[in-house]
Design a protein around this nucleic acid. Structure first.
Length: 424
RNA sequence: GGAGGGAUGGCUGAGUGGUCGAAAGCGGCGGUCUUGAAAACCGUUGAGGCGCAAGCCUCCGGGGGUUCGAAUCCCUCUCCCUCCGCCA
């Protein structure tokens, strides 16, 4: 959520910056809501003040044994007016809150202006796409024939967009998770956390999945109002919800492996082949809570931590700055890491690293105590994939294949593979 | 699943329907003392909103109700704890 004070004081500037990301802010509506809010709030508070002072007077008079009936008559219809006014204020505030919750974050000034992913800005490349003296296969052709990847079995058990893995590929998949967790904890200073995979509504509001993106989520039926997590970002970032962290506790670097569940409601017909877009996939997520002054440096560091995984796995990739039109709802700036996939002959997103500034923190009431002022202030949140495991598996298979269709395990990963160097 | 007990400021924990936004302790901050530190002592210290300010308003798990007035009474929901049962 944006700072309501900012909207009140610099509405036109805010509207201009939101327009860059293709969002039209209804400034007239906001002005109208604000004007009414101010009026009703003032009136309500006057009535409350009057009630408070009258009630105190009654208490005092009663204590001194005076006749309180005249005073009671005086406030006779005050209660009704106050109740009506409070009700009106509540309704208007709800309307205003709903309006504010729909507004995306302001793009940082360094974000390239553009409409869609075509306008994203490539910042750098690492590694060379491998040259094969044979026609490289995609991961489905590499895994499916031997049953190492089995989409038919998954379709029978559940449906489309699920996968079954077996033997060496299942092992490789698990090794990637352990490798990522160990690298981030041992080399990048992250603390590993384990969290619930089902979350309540408050958590989804906190990180911004609700109210706007309910259709992307799986909602669990039953007595509890729970949702399957679409990313570890939700439970992990919500660790800071309603907290006031001491200065010493910052910055916090958290790494978490979870499965992720996405309905993919709007993506029928896209990426229907293979592991690229699944309803269930594993991801190792990096989350940071930092002091407000530190978040831009933290974004660069976090992105480098995700890149380190690709480098160790010898996977060619490029770093892209998302343009204003492609930016996620809560993000002020996002770097995507795109890995080279020989099977598709192009770079595909494998990690998305974002600085949310105080946008999530405001919804979450995630704060720290600033030692300079002694007061609680909003902290900054960041996250990034480090990495999406399913897509990393695809990348390893396709980039490290040989003419016989076998997969060569990258050196850095071998300690996690129990001696297996070649799969297939 | 059955029975009971709870939810109060950064933390622990008092609280009779009427100066209670809330005792006390801890912690934090400032000071006295000290070469310095500790101890002791003194002072200070909840969060949020509106307003240029003075100030006003809200908040004692969430929601609703009773009342001139609710942390305190009633209803409801959520969460936590203890015991029993079941269970990976």
């Amino acid at each position: 959520m944006l700072d309501p004070k900012l909207l009140r004081s610099q509405l036109d500037e805010v509207a201009e910056r939101l327009a860059r990301r293709g969002y039209t802010l209804d400034t007239e509506r906001f002005r109208a809501l604000e004007a009414r809010r101010k009026e009703i709030q003032t009136r309500t508070q006057e009535l409350q003040s009057l009630r408070n002072s009258r009630s105190k007077a009654i208490g005092k008079a009663k204590a001194q044994g005076e006749d309180i009936q005249p005073l009671l008559d005086e406030v006779a219809e005050l209660g009704e007016r106050l109740k009506a006014s409070e009700q009106a204020l509540r309704e208007l505030q709800a309307e205003l809150d709903a309006f504010l919750l729909e507004i995306p974050n302001l793009p940082d000034d360094s974000v390239p202006v553009g409409e869609d992913e075509e306008d994203n800005l490539e910042l750098r490349r690492w590694g060379e796409p491998p040259q094969f003296d044979f026609e490289p296969r995609d991961h489905v052709d590499l895994g499916a024939p031997a049953g190492l990847l089995d989409f038919e079995a998954a379709a029978k058990i559940t449906g489309a967009r699920f996968a079954v893995m077996r033997a060496g590929i299942a092992r490789l998949h698990r090794a990637l998770i352990q490798f990522m967790l160990d690298t981030h904890t041992r080399e990048h200073g992250y603390t590993e956390v384990y969290v619930p995979y089902l979350v309540n509504r408050d958590s989804l509001y906190g990180t911004g999945q609700l109210p706007k993106f309910a259709e992307d989520l799986f909602h669990v039926e039953g007595e509890h109002d729970w949702y399957l997590i679409p990313t570890a970002e939700v439970p992990v970032t919500n660790l800071a919800r309603d907290e006031i962290l001491p200065d010493e506790a910052l910055p916090q670097r958290l790494v978490c492996h979870t499965p992720c569940f996405r309905s993919e409601a709007g993506s029928h017909g896209r990426d229907t082949r293979g592991l690229i877009r699944q309803h269930q996939f594993e991801k190792v997520e990096l989350v940071q809570f930092v002091r407000p002054g530190e978040s831009w440096d933290a974004l660069e560091a976090l992105t480098a931590h995700a890149e380190a995984i690709l480098q160790k796995l010898e996977l060619p990739y490029r770093v892209v700055a998302l343009c204003t039109g492609d930016l996620g709802f809560s993000s002020a700036k996002t770097y995507d890491l795109e890995v080279w996939l020989p099977g598709q002959g192009r770079y595909r997103e494998i990690s998305s690293c974002s600085n949310f500034l105080d946008f999530q923190a405001r919804r979450l009431k995630a704060r720290w105590r600033n030692p300079e002022t002694g007061k609680p202030e909003l902290l900054h949140t960041l996250n990034g994939s480090g990495l999406a495991v399913g897509r990393t598996l695809v990348a390893v298979m396709e980039n490290h294949q040989d003419a016989e269709g076998r997969i060569h395990v990258p050196k850095a990963l071998q300690p996690w593979m129990g001696g297996i160097e070649v799969i297939g």
